[in-house]
């Protein structure tokens, strides 16, 4: 078996590294990058204070529905619905939906890779938005009050006071999210998009050495996630020592 592994590495190392690992990292990077952008908007949406029916505001209204409607925030509602749906359904289902379902609704000429990246980004966005939200809410409410009492508006308070403190909680969490995504991209191999798991399928199709190839591929995944988690840890240490 050991000889087989050596043989496989010698013969296919380019496939594993320059194809498999490369696509895995590209997919993860795309997913997290767009996930962070989209996730930021979702988090802001959830925490927004948009109440279009406020003018029916009737504080002492006897009708529960009226009070509910006056406080109803459709943007926040939609954003939490999105997060709940994404977090409550399997990633594999979402991948199928994006690859086989969406092209029927959105008729653009794109390959599997595009749809898979989109699915991963949308999935990641839901998780990232929760990281943002908890990171921001972990900042003491007194900080906001102090800033507002000085006459700073909401945006200034957010940018100058809350975010700089929240980012310390959020960045390591996003690092961990990236690690999780690296592993989750393996599901993309269902659609043969070229990631590490796809390279397993490819090589195994020729060599029929499932165990050996899985060990190699697994070792690569492990090396990447191990390296990344050390990176996150080092960053956290640096923050704490400050």
């Amino acid at each position: 078996m050991f000889q087989n592994i050596i043989m496989l590495i010698e013969k296919y190392w380019k496939v594993f590294l320059f194809e498999g690992l490369r696509y895995t990292l590209i997919l993860s990077a795309i997913a997290v990058f767009f996930g962070v952008i989209l996730g930021t908007f979702i988090a802001l949406g959830r925490m927004s204070n948009f109440k279009p029916f406020r003018h029916i505001y009737y504080r002492k209204s006897k009708f529960k529905f009226v009070r509910w409607l006056a406080n109803f925030n459709p943007i926040s509602w939609f954003c939490s619905l999105y997060t709940e749906i994404i977090r409550g359904t399997p990633l594999l289902l979402q991948l199928y939906l994006f690859v086989f379902g969406l092209p029927k609704v959105i008729p653009i000429d794109a390959d599997y890779f595009f749809w898979v990246s989109l699915a991963l980004a949308c999935n990641s966005a839901a998780y990232v938005s929760e990281l943002f939200r908890s990171g921001i809410q972990a900042v003491d409410k007194g900080q906001t009050e102090a800033a507002r009492s000085l006459g700073m508006n909401k945006a200034q308070t957010m940018i100058k006071v809350v975010m700089p403190q929240a980012i310390k909680n959020i960045l390591p969490a996003i690092g961990n999210e990236f690690i999780a995504i690296v592993k989750e991209t393996s599901m993309a191999s269902t659609f043969f998009v070229g990631d590490l798991m796809t390279s397993y399928l490819k090589v195994n199709g020729v060599e029929y050495l499932a165990l050996e190839i899985l060990i190699i591929v697994g070792a690569i995944y492990l090396a990447v996630t191990f390296f990344l988690s050390k990176l996150v840890l080092a960053y956290e240490r640096r923050l704490n020592s400050k």
Binding site: A146, S149, L150, P164, Q165
Partner: peptide, 20 residues
């Protein structure tokens, strides 16, 4: 309200200085 808050300083029980 932001305009008027500039004219009112507030000091809190828990200081709320900006730690960053």
């Amino acid at each position: 309200i932001d305009l008027h808050r500039q004219k009112m300083g507030m000091v809190f029980q828990h200081f709320n200085v900006f730690p960053h």
